[in-house]
Design a protein around this nucleic acid. Sequence first.
RNA 1: GGUUCCGUGGUGUAGGGGUUAACACGUCUGCCUGUCACGCAGAAGAUCGCGGGUUCAAAUCUCGUCGGAACCGCCA
Length: 580
Amino acid sequence: MNTYRTNTCGELTIKDLDKEVTLSGFVQGIRDHGGVMFIDLRDHFGMTQVVVHDDSMLKGVSKETVIKITGKVVKRDVDTINKKITTGEVEVVADTLELLSDTAKALPFEVDESKKVSEDVRLKYRFLDLRNPKVHENIVIRSKAFDFLRNKMKELGFLEITTPIITSSSPEGARDFIIPSRKHKGKFYALPQAPQQFKQLLMASGFDKYFQLAPCFRDEDGRSDRLVGEFYQLDMEMAYANQEDIMEVAEQVFPAFFKEFGKRKVTEGHFKRIPYKESMLKYGTDKPDLRNPLEIIDVSEVFKETEFRPFRDSIVRAIKVDDIASKPNSWFNELVDYAKSIDMPGIGYITVEEDKSLKGPINKFLTEENRKNLFSKAGLKVGSVLFFIADKRESVASKNAGLIRDELGRKLDLMDHNLFEFCFITDMPMYEISEITGKLDFMHNPFSMPRGGEEALENENPLEIYADQFDVVCNGVELVSGAVRNNRPEVLVKAFNLAGYTEEDIKKKFNALYTAFSYGCPPHVGMALGIDRSLMMLLEEDNVRETVAFPLNQNGEDVLTGTPNEVTELQLRETHIKLR
RNA sequence: GGUUCCGUGGUGUAGGGGUUAACACGUCUGCCUGUCACGCAGAAGAUCGCGGGUUCAAAUCUCGUCGGAACCGCCA
């Protein structure tokens, strides 16, 4: 028999009346009425009210001390029932009270209000912060989410295989976390940025469907939606499958996951598919929020010979919003201010008046033909407003139009806040012109299969070569990246050649994969879901750190454990490291 | 690496040249037999992140520095 408790603090109900019970937990609070005292006793499972009649029993007991009590379960008077807690119909009258663990110091903050405390203090006393039921619950849900994903993948016939954490540095991608080798002077291990190479090697090893709840490590700066250092992916790969097959898995797993753990509606059925280029035009981003009904159109042609200099020979994008022509000037001025805040010179717009005439700062530059074209192109009607975003560079015009679209969505509250809307972004270009070198380079994953295989690489314009690669985006957040992998060495060589790499380069940098492929490898396809970011959305948090028990802060430190820290001279010597 | 914002009792905030540095919660003491954000009375607790400058006078203005957050870069 457990000496600390017969029951948890979350389970006693009217059914347990008159039972002699033992409970242990943290003291959440004491209400002393002189002659009768109430203790809120809290553990992982919940809260129970303990009644004490003898104040000498409370010696040394204060908030957050750990106590054990024995006593009888009694019914509360009807007018003293607390409906906020599951045990609220009963209370335990304490016969004995034992202090199991004292608090040495005054608390740095009140546990049940810890979410209001600055993050650096919370993380310094994370163990107290995590006692807060609201904070605690996130970690419990995270655990359940891992269970759910694991079960779901197994249900679909995927096999969980763990891959090395101590591995080697790979030349592409993010900065690695490196570990000095003791036995191999001057050589280093590295933590994996993702299990990419290993999961493809598993395919070459004849495993059919692999998955892993994989820790990934990248030595890059964080954001509110990006953890510093380590994060988890639901990583998967399947053999003898094409893009349709893996997309089907996406549609089976992710909405179910969001339905199970989220509080919102989830889009039913197949995800909408949007080709990358269409997304960049219509939404100004490769991760569109489809809850926003506004779409961007290109009107460059209309203004090709306009007298309005900023629009002439520029990329001009437009967003039409119906029924807002009557908004006051201040409303439009706010939008102009926003445009300036994102480094746009301004934002032009025209409004359609009752008599179908146009008004607005741009109107005087328009010819009758311009007006006619805009009416038909944008579908203008009485009450519509058409906003213009222009720039000489297409990428800038596109991006700014996307930001304005987002801002209009927010300002006009066009989004359904009770919805998770998924879509696929497809038809990713294989290559792009690098802004740094001006040369052709891979746009995303160089191991993706060019659509159409080897033949596709013959295309005279390499920018028209597409990869069988896709993202899953939900409410404007990129959650998943997936692709058909390039499993054929000769195609791989050709694809790398186009980007200026030789076969020797591949052998040097990706020897394991290249060698494995040359011994035969089934066609395979895979993807990975960012679990932490998904949880952030599901828990309705605006910071990913809320989904992890012990996150690093933005500066890559854990102030609680003192991470990173210095190591001993001996450790340095054994690993052949000399500090400068 | 860059930009912006923020550093005031334990916590959260107010105060924007002269204040006894204010308020709420917490802590401590006393009172209270039905509270659950208990209540009442009282007390302790702050060199206003640190360093320089301006000024008769700086928490307040200014420069620097340190720390934190958000964003940009970065994240195949």
